[in-house]
Design a protein around this nucleic acid. Structure first.
Lengths: 366, 366
DNA sequence: ATCGCAAGTGTGTGCGCACACACCGGCAAT
DNA sequence: ATTGCCGGTGTGTGCGCACACACTTGCGAT
């Protein structure tokens, strides 16, 4: 019995979609041979290959990805190498993006596997890399915190022919498929502008840093600091930058250090951190009732958001971590499933958050 | 001959995907009956309906959208009612979002039809609405510029049972499926903060307005102005607001008006517009070399961007038009294809652009 | 008793593609 | 002459779903 099925109108008008059978008919071969050409599976005579290619070209064949995905049932695994985190921390937002991408990409049989490390401990990152060597996956999203360890690892990936994208900060020398993140250098300049705009050019500035169980700060923090200093240099800054090393978990110690600093330098009127821990400085300023210090930091995490709301933090500079996660995974998904190559460098917007606009800065808004 | 096909592992482990056949088997009916329940096609006994629904619920059945789209071949048409525009104007960015959504949704047989009106001419909007009455479509994205015309039209849509979403500014009284845009009121407050932050509280401020071939400004502009004034009132503003009516296409006239204004009010130190035409004021300030006036406006369109780069405009407040277009269409697509209901109010972030971060504010970054 | 009809149900086909497998011819090794 | 092998080719099945159509029952009308 012949059945019409829904109108596909293969007879009347012209606008029909071209399928593999059509190609096959045009080239005078079977669909399997066309399939071999499309997927470079070989085993096709030079003659047929040329003819099929010509037809493919001529009709500008576009495979139906829906059907392909249905039929192939092939699973693609995207590995994501990222820091561990607690709720409300920076990488939680990144994770939210991963989750959203996961939900969307699962339609195309793409799954995500997470590999987490301690962002303050280089050896934990190395352990993750070791694990990765034993695992199989089709692509990787790499957070580049430990740049000097990432670079050699990408060579292994190159050899294994596994595509990878970077997030957080870029390492342009690697053969990454793409980068998603802000220009850390320019994000430094933005912080400088926000801090310096209303400052006396001869006022001093505190630069809060966090001690790492390893080397001195991430690649990203270094770049931001460069951009920050560059801006000051170009804008007639005549004060002094006081770097202080603070601790994540020792408030008493931080207080002691800062008390001493402020005691010796009355002209401090600004403060900045290059990672997401400006809430530490904010907590101090708030506790000591020092309202005369402008404070600028990075990333909209819960604790920073609160301090901005309370007026202790002047401004936050943010980098859309959720978008980084989402697009990192989605770009690889598109590459694996459709062979669609993403733009290589994707510098995301540098967001500025003030008390007045922070409340709408949420993750569910792409 | 039985063929294994790629490993779908319906026997061994647990993680198999649940299909309609599985539901049917569990409920002791055929797939067609399950299909009738899923699509509310009726003709199912109360008994079976209850049982099938229970199974559906219990296993949390998620249809395979890929397969559905392949099989159904059903077309959904999303109408988009939006202003005409030239390249580089505000609505061009919105259009970019529409295009992106279109590309993505076309996989699910969703197509977009545009209906354009002249944003400065109310009668042209009414003509579009008249056209819409004759057309068939499955859902609408409505730009709410002419609020008082939109409201009665949504009643017609309600009667025709056609879902619609708003963009640009919200009209909470309508039965919209969703709204995508900023809180205009708060965006007004942000502009006030950016403008007023470094201003002498007793300085005067110019408010630039554009004459409309109709009533006085859009719903959005009115709301922004309210938020702006509210902020000033709460922050001890003691100057005067001078509203001036400018023209889109008559520079000489604008110059005359502004010359006169500045001649009479030497204490003007700030300027603002509540739509995207702050480049007009900027052009004047630049031509007259008046560097002592802080200028804040809305929307990152080409001409504003240039003025920000040159330092004539102090800051721009932006509202992610591209996201509005994208999500407007995508939310309706998801609703039509999957029956997934979006959040009702989606207040997008209010973006702040300065000379230092404008260069990364592009549309291709979601 | 027969028919018509409606409500309810099941069977089968195809969407466009990927891929397992069978197959065919020719040529070298036994 | 038989076997094996290999480059090259075609056939058939199923992915999960939507839907056209055939079918079954029960009941009232003729």
């Amino acid at each position: 019995m012949t059945m019409e099925h829904h109108t596909n109108d293969k007879s009347g008008t012209f606008a029909k979609t071209i399928r593999i059978v059509d190609i096959a008919r045009m080239a005078g071969v079977s669909t399997a041979t066309v399939d071999r050409v499309i997927h470079h599976r070989g085993k096709v005579s030079a003659e047929n290959l040329a003819r099929i290619r010509a037809v493919l070209e001529q009709v500008d064949y576009r495979p139906n990805l829906i059907a392909r995905s249905l039929a192939s049932g092939r699973e693609h695994v995207v590995a994501v190498v990222m820091p561990e985190f607690a709720a409300g921390e920076y990488w939680a937002d990144f994770e939210a993006g991963i989750l959203r991408a996961e939900a969307e990409a699962s339609r195309y049989n793409v799954t995500v596997r997470r590999f987490r490390f301690d962002q303050y401990d280089r050896t934990s990152f190395e352990r993750v890399l070791a694990t990765l060597r034993e695992e199989t996956f089709d692509a990787v999203v790499l957070a580049t915190l430990f740049a000097e360890r990432v670079i050699p690892f990408t060579q292994e990936l190159d050899e294994r022919n596994i595509p990878y994208v970077f997030v957080d900060s870029d390492l342009p020398t690697c053969h990454r498929l793409a980068y998603f993140g802000t220009s850390s250098f320019d994000a430094g300049a933005v912080a400088a502008r926000l801090l310096f705009e209303r400052l006396d050019p001869s006022a001093d500035i505190v630069v809060g840093k966090i001690l790492h169980r390893g080397e001195g700060g991430s690649n990203q923090c270094r770049e931001r600091e460069r951009g920050f200093c560059d801006y000051l240099a170009r804008h007639d800054f005549r004060g002094v930058l006081h770097a202080v090393e603070l601790r994540l978990d020792d408030e008493a110690c931080n207080t002691r250090i800062l008390d001493e600093l402020f005691a010796h330098h009355a002209s401090i009127a600004g403060a900045v951190t290059f990672n997401s821990t400006c809430y530490i400085l904010a907590g101090y300023l708030s506790a000591r009732r020092r309202s005369g210090v402008r404070l600028v930091g990075y990333d909209v995490i819960d604790r920073n958001r609160r301090m901005l709301d309370e007026g202790v933090v002047t401004a936050l500079v943010a980098q859309r971590p959720e978008v980084q996660g989402y697009r990192g995974v989605m770009s690889l998904s598109a590459w694996l499933v459709e062979g669609r190559r993403p733009a290589e460098v994707n510098n995301l917007p540098i967001d500025i958050l003030l008390k007045e606009n922070i409340s709408y800065y949420t993750n569910n808004n792409i």
